[in-house]
Design a protein around this nucleic acid. Sequence first.
DNA 1: CGATTCTTTGAAAACAGTCAATCTGTGTGG
DNA 2: CCACACAGATTGACTGTTTTCAAAGAATCG
Lengths: 198, 198
Amino acid sequence: MDPLIKMFSIFEAYLQQKITLTPAELEHIKSLSFIKKLRKKQYLLQEGDVWKYHAFITTGCLRTYTVDEKGLEHIISFAIENWWAGDKESLLTGEPSKFNIDAVEDSEVLLFTNSNFELICREIPAFNNMVNAILQKSFIASQNRINAAISYTAEEKYLNFIHKYPGFATRIPQSMIASYLGITPETLSRVRNQSTKK
Amino acid sequence: MDPLIKMFSIFEAYLQQKITLTPAELEHIKSLSFIKKLRKKQYLLQEGDVWKYHAFITTGCLRTYTVDEKGLEHIISFAIENWWAGDKESLLTGEPSKFNIDAVEDSEVLLFTNSNFELICREIPAFNNMVNAILQKSFIASQNRINAAISYTAEEKYLNFIHKYPGFATRIPQSMIASYLGITPETLSRVRNQSTKK
DNA sequence: CGATTCTTTGAAAACAGTCAATCTGTGTGG
DNA sequence: CCACACAGATTGACTGTTTTCAAAGAATCG
């Protein structure tokens, strides 16, 4: 099966679960998308580059992260199949990104240039509404993450994480969970040992 | 001067700086808004209540915060004049809010019920676009705050804060800045002393 | 002023981070 | 198929930062 057809069918299922589209609209959206396959550890975006796309993940897992002066990575977000990735700030301002995005697993991504994406939003109001609803959910999730980051202890952060994303923890190295939670891998290891004892 | 007229003129100036509206549209928006004056420390929203509005601050300063089991407050966000406040999660889900919103200074707020707000969004596409642009900026700010929360030391958090919001720090108690940064007031006090020595 | 609130300071304790070594599991090439 | 290499996880000892608790010192406001 043509990979574009297969990948797009995943996106199509995603769209149809959220909004109603005519076959012509679907075909139009499809015509404006293109595929990118990423091997594990391959970059989708590197710090310093300008991000100009909207990326929908059909399979796999990506991470968005910063690297500090000491070379430590801090994961801002994960994005798995049926979710979006990108740097909205770089996209909006045109400034070079301060984030890196790379593949945690071999992944397949559907890309839209920003101008094509905006075209779709203008032409298909339901699509625009969907995009705004996603943004709203993303914002709410961010608020909750901020609350966890400034209120919780290391243990609470971990327990909250596995409760919120059950199953996901087994899919990625623990050191990445630590990086996402803002603690060291060693601390996470100790916290896990103590939690299981209870 | 009628307080509604005065307050609305602030909102009107805000709107006209962002979008173009006809006098009739402005009048329509005005007719769907209502005033709330808040004395310092007065609640706009209490934990457990369902939030059903969109609040635009014309003067003053509000804070959104959680209270943990120990009774400690954790500030999720500040909102000053010409900015918005509310709990999008409670609004979207209809669930009781886990946040409190109260006035840090005597404040004046313009309120729209969610249904009236959505009506305006539907009737005036430019207004809807403006709302989405604000949401986008809010999301970007949240991402940056998450990055600071998981990457920075206490001192870096403070320096980043005063750099990002110059002047604002003098407007609120330092203990609230500490609460916003996720550190204790004592630590902030010490960090400030050390920073000024340098 | 006096009362309240906020900030600063000190000393001790708790927590998380660092560095280094060991252990575990996985996958690859000989 | 085994042995090895590698990446990731764990553990220990130590260090450093931040918190906690308590008290004293400013600042603010009625």
